[in-house]
Design a protein around this nucleic acid. Structure first.
Lengths: 217, 217
DNA sequence: GATGATTTGTACGTATGTATA
DNA sequence: ATATACATACGTACAAATCAT
């Protein structure tokens, strides 16, 4: 694999996991030293991260981890919800039995992950669950776009999961979605997904208000 | 402005305008000579174009203008249609009177651009028209995403407009959309937009079959 | 406001991996 | 299968701009 790819993946992990918080500046030379590389592949990795919105490049002034205003986050949540609704509606019409059963299996496995102790495990499951829906659309382009947006919002999603009882409620909502999907009721599945996303957003809002609402995240 | 930015914009124009066709290979040194720059900024421009999907980088094997399979194009059209539908539905709920009147003004100006003689002018109008709808959503993130996708599909959109009578039909469809929007009927506007996008796609399909259907575009 | 230090932007050379003969 | 040619990937050096003093 290319060195620039390795750097990019490592940095993306650090950002989406929260190890590198919003606003943290990313010195090219420092990163190069850390990865035992030169500045060239580091630069290419940073440019790529900028194109997917994880970092912000201020020409000749350095690169920082993207920090979004509340308005921007609200906008992203809205788009994210609409995309998820589209995906589930299309998936209902196109998924095959294997894909449907895989979704149920994932859902069943998630039963062991409810509760605030296993938020990280539930977060990973949640990622797989939604990704499975994306794939069930049989539209690769849509799946890639949806996945990219989810990746970009990883930090916020994790935050909302930590709200009180959110994991167990999230799992119940998943079940409603799956039941509608199994019946082939696309409109009902879409409605359930909309509710699911709306609740996630509300939980994120409560999270924002509790610790410190400084307007940026 | 940064040199790499200038190169990127120039190349993006060449690709979306069709001057550089799908599959054309983009030699770093050659481009560097053409722009009077070194390979470094050219490389960064190419990386950026790859991230928005306009070119394809095959590691250590060179960069070519992206050439999409028919399946990929179908997928993109589908996503594009869904995005447009979302935008118009949201726009109906959020646009103000100024934005509404601007849409109508644009629409009226387009009357002079129907017919196959003015396809380029109509294409530019069409871009502005849909962009105005994006902005009327008052969701910057959505507007940016929608615009990026439209840019990426610029070549295909131009192609479908050249189908017989497509401009005049397109304009009529715009009028239906605008009438529903003015009435504040989001669902009807969404339906009209879906029809509009579907017809554009059909026109593109006819275009694909006529000259040479080699599977790639 | 000027000057030095630091960091990015650009240029260029070398090495590595790919494709072709 | 081996070797050769080639373009890219990476490293290094310099130039230019920003910032700190």
């Amino acid at each position: 694999m290319l060195l620039s790819e390795r750097v990019r993946i490592a940095l993306a992990d650090d950002i989406t996991s929260g190890a590198l918080g919003p606003g943290a500046d990313l010195d090219e030379q420092e990163l190069a030293d850390r990865f035992g590389a030169s500045r060239t592949p580091v630069r290419e990795a940073l440019r790529h991260l900028a194109s997917v919105g994880l970092v912000e490049i201020r020409p000749r002034r350095g690169v920082v981890v993207a920090s979004l205003s509340q308005d921007q986050i609200v906008d992203m949540f809205e788009v994210s919800a609409e995309i998820e609704v589209i995906c589930v509606r299309i998936a209902v019409n196109r998924m095959n039995m294997l894909e449907c059963s895989q979704l149920w299996r994932l859902h069943e496995e998630s039963e062991a992950m409810i509760g605030n102790a296993a938020v990280d495990a539930y977060d990973r499951f949640n990622y797989s669950f939604h990704e499975a829906i994306y794939r069930a659309t049989h539209n690769s382009f849509l799946a890639i776009q949806a996945l990219a947006l989810r990746e970009r919002m990883a930090a916020f999603r994790r935050a909302q999961l930590r709200a009180a009882n959110r994991t167990s409620q999230s799992r119940r909502e998943h079940e409603h979605i799956l039941n509608a999907m199994r019946r082939g009721d696309g409109e009902e599945a879409a409605r359930c997904m909309r509710v699911h996303m709306s609740n996630a957003f509300s939980a994120f809002g409560r999270y924002l208000e509790s610790p410190k609402a400084d307007g940026n995240v």
